[in-house]
Simulated scan of single mutants.
Amino acid sequence: MLDALAPARRRFLLGVLALALVAVAGLGVAIWRTHDKAVEPVSQETQGPVLLVPGYGGGTAGLEVLAGALRAQGRDVEIVDLPGNNTGDLDRQAGALGKAVILALQRAGARSVDVVGYSAGGVVARLWVRDHGGGGLARRVVTLGSPHHGSDLAGLGSDVAPDSCPRACEQLQPDSDLLRALNAGDETPTGPKWVSIWTTDDRVVVPPSSSNLDGALDFTIQSVCPGHEVSHGQLPQDPVVIAAVIRQLVVADPAVPGPEIC
């Protein structure tokens, strides 16, 4: 086909094809570098700041009790103020968490952080680790009553009152595009040690077992303290839950606590 073209046109076409091949090759290298970049886990022996990530539409006040308990243990604690009243795009919230982490590391002169994500804040923390460089900065990630596989309540809200279901509400529906992608393959990417704590009394994360996180140390409060009642909203303020969280943020490896916390 090229032989039928005039010499000048043939040279032009060959030049265009060569440039296209270079561009495709460059894109392939960039993609390969992005996916091949290995995460180097941080040391588990050094405790840095603790960042508390609030849940859907919850603001920061609900985490003050947990923050106070951790500060009483000598920890440097910051409650992250997320954009969009915690109801906007979860990936954007993950980016905001990433910025808060960098500032906390610079302020404290630390090399790693511990992150505790309450409710949807746990999903935000997972997005940060997977997509925003958190794997090489997080020592521990603890989630409290997080709808890792969505909540039927979000789906119901979208069906009954779609105008009252903001972006994060849509993303927290079971089998949403965001959750389907987040849970495809490894639910707990390389980097931090992962813990998921939840309650069987949850009426916001429906079913409560949506908080199961494959690859994490995963346990319910009731498996440690049978008969202990704690709702979704009480999780970050309940003394038993707080004791369980504190145990996961020490230097020793995460472990299911004993009945002494009950």
Rank of each mutant, 00 (worst) to 15 (best):
V50N: 04
R75D: 06
N85L: 11
V50F: 02
A25W: 04
M1E: 13
N86V: 04
G28F: 05
R9D: 15
V53L: 06
A72D: 13
G62W: 00
A72P: 04
T87E: 15
N85W: 11
V24M: 14
E78M: 11
G48V: 00
Q73R: 10
G84A: 07
A67K: 14
F12D: 12
E45G: 05
L17H: 06
L52D: 03
V50L: 06
G26W: 02
Q44A: 15
A69G: 03
T34M: 09
A4V: 13
R92A: 15
L63E: 07
V80K: 09
Y56Q: 12
G74N: 01
A23M: 03
I79G: 07
L66N: 01
G88F: 01
P54W: 00
R9M: 13
A6N: 12
S43A: 14
L27W: 13
G98D: 11
V42W: 11
L82A: 10
A6E: 14
V42K: 07
W32S: 13
I31N: 09
G68S: 11
A23W: 01
A38N: 05
T87I: 08
G88A: 13
Q93W: 10
A61D: 14
T60D: 08
L14C: 10
E64Y: 04
P83N: 09
V39L: 06
G28H: 04
L21T: 13
V16N: 00
A38K: 12
Q44P: 05
V77T: 01
K99I: 08
A30M: 09
A23G: 07
V77E: 00
D3H: 11
L70G: 02
L21E: 14
A100G: 08
N85C: 06
K37W: 05
P54H: 05
V77Q: 01
A25I: 03
Y56F: 15
R71S: 13
L51R: 01
G98W: 10
A20T: 07
G57M: 08
D76H: 06
V42R: 11
R9F: 09
K37D: 10
T87D: 10
G57Q: 05
P54Q: 01
A20W: 12
V53N: 03
R71D: 07
A38Q: 12
G59H: 06
V50K: 01
G84M: 02
V65H: 07
K37V: 12
V101Y: 01
R11L: 12
E64I: 06
L19W: 10
L17S: 12
V80I: 09
Q73V: 00
A67Y: 04
E64A: 15
L66C: 01
L5V: 15
G58Q: 14
A100L: 07
G95H: 07
G58R: 13
S43M: 11
K37R: 15
E40L: 13
Q93D: 14
K37S: 13
R75W: 03
G58E: 14
G88M: 02
V65M: 06
E45H: 09
G55T: 00
A100S: 11
L21A: 15
D3C: 08
R9P: 09
